[in-house]
């Protein structure tokens, strides 16, 4: 027994090395750069700069609006799909679900390139509708992350609950709004978290769809390519804090729903 736990401790060593090398150290490097100037001295100029420059604030605002729109569109598309699939008595529903998830297995670049061609066919010049194109691109990319958790949560809702609602006089619509919808909130929260956060910092989809407006990802990229590591790091830190705050917020709400319900990830 003692030998066993001794051995186990050694098994953990590679992971500790990994964590230190790729998580802890980079974070410190990031913090170091964020709070130093070009001469290496401590400064909060970068921090103040983030909130005073119209450039960064505008980009942050644009990114939030874009991510928010994408999330809402994803939710509006995913919820009915997840609900219909989860409640139908189809025997092959896992196959249909697979069909929605399958695009994730096809190379990302290929998918977006194909989407680009289709959008070009419709719009002729992608530069005219950068916002809409970005929303379409990211919805296409992130939809499965919204469908899966909602589907799993609805699948886990005891069928007798909707029966009980009907038994107590609720119409189909009422039993949906009063029972199924509130109980699927944990799934919606996981879905929203899994779509909103990557949409906020997404870079590649927008770049490939010729969205020339700066979003957070490309702003950071542009600072770094101009060798301004300090401002780039500060933006990353601010984003990290925003995301942490949001996760904490949604996580708290998540736990409030029902002690037993654990939302299922993909």
């Amino acid at each position: 027994m003692k030998h066993n736990s001794f051995f186990r401790r050694y098994l953990g060593i590679p992971y500790i090395i990994y964590l230190v090398l790729f998580v802890v150290m980079p974070l410190f490097v990031l913090i170091y750069y964020a709070f130093t100037g070009r001469d290496g001295s401590f400064t909060v100029k970068n921090f103040i700069g983030f909130f005073t420059q119209s450039n960064t604030l505008g980009t942050l605002f644009y990114s939030v609006v874009l991510a928010f729109t994408t999330t809402v569109v994803c939710l509006l598309v995913a919820y009915p799909v997840a609900y219909i699939l989860a409640t139908s008595s189809l025997k092959k529903k896992s196959v249909i679900l697979m069909a929605f998830v399958m695009p994730m297995w096809i190379n990302f670049t290929l998918r977006i390139t194909a989407l680009k061609e289709i959008l070009t066919l419709i719009e002729h010049n992608l530069a005219f509708h950068p916002f809409i194109n970005s929303v379409i691109g990211m919805t296409y990319d992130f939809l499965p992350f919204m469908i899966m958790p909602i589907y799993n949560v609805i699948m886990g809702i005891d069928k007798s609950l909707t029966e009980a609602a009907g038994d107590l006089g609720a119409s189909t619509l009422q039993s949906f709004t009063k029972v199924v919808l509130p109980l699927s909130v944990p799934g919606i929260i996981s879905g929203v978290t899994m779509v909103f956060l990557p949409s906020m910092t997404n870079y590649v989809v927008l770049d490939m769809l010729y969205n020339s407006t700066y979003i957070m990802g490309s702003l950071i990229g542009s600072y770094f390519s101009a060798y301004d590591w300090h401002n780039g790091s500060m933006i990353s830190i601010v984003l990290l804090v925003i995301i942490l705050l949001m996760t904490a917020l949604t996580g708290k709400k998540d736990g409030k729903g029902d002690g037993k319900k654990k939302e299922a990830y993909v």
Partner: peptide, 8 residues
């Protein structure tokens, strides 16, 4: 049988 009380 399993009560079917609304957990929320």
């Amino acid at each position: 049988q399993r009560y079917a009380l609304f957990p929320h």
